[in-house]
């Protein structure tokens, strides 16, 4: 639904954290198996990275999938055709 990601409740916990999801993979640079996928902000904006946690080699940098909720909010009209004025 277009308007499903405009308003959010305040988190229940007093502090909040970014979750790093372990990924079955091996770092091509250092061989470490400590690889994780998580949301970051890079020089362009919000992205999902799969990254070696030992040496920070980025195995992949992609746009978030809808279920990643990254960022949580999004434009309600993002996939509508654009008029001359937007």
């Amino acid at each position: 639904m277009a308007t499903d990601r405009l308003m959010f409740p305040r988190p229940q916990t007093a502090r909040v954290s970014v979750e790093r999801t372990p990924v079955e993979s091996q770092c091509p640079s250092c061989g470490s198996r400590d690889v994780a996928r998580y949301p970051v902000s890079n020089h362009l904006g919000p992205r999902m990275v799969v990254k070696c946690q030992t040496c920070f080699t980025r195995l992949s940098v992609t746009r978030a999938e809808p279920e990643d909720m990254w960022p949580a909010w999004r434009s309600p009209t993002r996939d509508w055709p654009a008029s001359r004025v937007g």
Partner: peptide, 21 residues
Amino acid sequence: GTLKPIDVLLPAGSVVQTLPP
């Protein structure tokens, strides 16, 4: 180029990434 070497992690719903409204 100043930003490129750095990834920043902002927890959603935190004081550094408040959520609407």
